[in-house]
């Protein structure tokens, strides 16, 4: 069987960590907004952390999907462009 070597560069890892950190920050802000909006106890900053993580991961996945679609469009555009340049 042929080996498939996938190389993940340091730059890519850094980018993903940055995106996930932003997603978690976004989820934290959403929780803060919800606490103020629904007049809930501030302790929910801690007690709702599992929801915050879930919302953060969900946001990351949605962004991931959008990025994948963008990459796909980019790839298709490149393919369309290539024959005309030959």
């Amino acid at each position: 069987m042929k080996d498939l070597n996938i190389v993940i560069k340091g730059r890519r890892i850094k980018l993903e960590i940055t995106i996930i950190a932003f997603c978690l920050l976004f989820a934290l802000l959403v929780n803060l907004y919800a606490i103020v909006r629904f007049d809930s106890p501030w302790s929910e900053i801690v007690t709702s952390l599992h929801y915050v993580v879930a919302v953060g991961v969900f946001t990351y996945l949605v962004i991931g999907l959008l990025r994948f679609i963008l990459q796909l469009i980019k790839l298709l555009l490149n393919r369309v462009k290539k024959p005309s340049s030959e």
């Binding site: 959403v30 929780n31 919800a34 606490i35 629904f38 809930s40 929910e44 709702s48 929801y51 915050v52």
Partner: peptide, 10 residues
């Protein structure tokens, strides 16, 4: 019991 604020928002 009311659910946590973040759940209410969702």
């Amino acid at each position: 019991p009311t659910p946590p604020a973040i759940v209410q928002l969702i």
